[in-house]
Amino acid sequence: MRNKSALFFRLLSKMSLIILAILIFSTAVLAKTEVLRINVAKDIKNLEPVETGKTFNNDIGKLYCFTKIKTDEYPTKVVHVWLYNDNIIAEVPLEVNSTTWRTYSSKKILPKWVGNWKVEIYSNDGELIDSVEFNIK
């Protein structure tokens, strides 16, 4: 009887380790970062975008890309990649320190930079999680 009990507890211990490994692996694989809200804006006040839009005049001077992030793992980072006519103009890494986090980046806009713009948002693992397009006229 004693050998059966010892064998049972060894099996139970091994099964517990396997289950623990599966849980750790599935948590890592299923960890998700997503954008809940994204806006291009003329300003940011109290961590909220002000005067959002899709078209801005070339004398705007500066624009902001606001993102509200939801994540299963934190702290983590996201990256705002600013593109002008499909060329990378800036890459801005931003900290995410909570399951729901508001953050933003900004970019000075020269009057000669008329045309199509886009900001792509990448998770810490390099996955494109959202983007927003806008135009400077």
Rank of each mutant, 00 (worst) to 15 (best):
L7N: 08
F8Y: 11
F8C: 08
F9N: 13
S13M: 07
I18K: 14
I19H: 10
I19V: 11
L20I: 04
L20F: 13
I22N: 07
I22D: 11
I24D: 02
F25S: 14
T27F: 12
T27D: 02
T33F: 04
L36T: 05
R37E: 15
I38F: 00
N39Y: 09
V40W: 02
D43K: 07
D43H: 02
I44S: 07
N46P: 00
L47I: 02
V50Q: 04
E51V: 00
E51P: 02
T52A: 05
K54R: 04
N57H: 09
I60S: 11
L63C: 08
Y64Q: 05
C65H: 08
C65S: 13
C65T: 08
K68L: 12
E73I: 05
Y74L: 01
Y74R: 03
P75E: 09
H80P: 08
L83V: 02
Y84V: 01
N85A: 12
N87L: 06
E91I: 15
P93K: 01
L94G: 02
E95C: 00
E95L: 08
N97F: 08
S98T: 00
S98P: 10
T99R: 01
T100M: 03
W101M: 09
T103V: 03
Y104R: 03
S105M: 08
S106F: 08
K107H: 13
K107N: 12
K108S: 14
P111F: 00
V114Y: 02
G115Q: 12
W117G: 01
K118D: 10
E120D: 15
G126H: 01
E127Y: 03
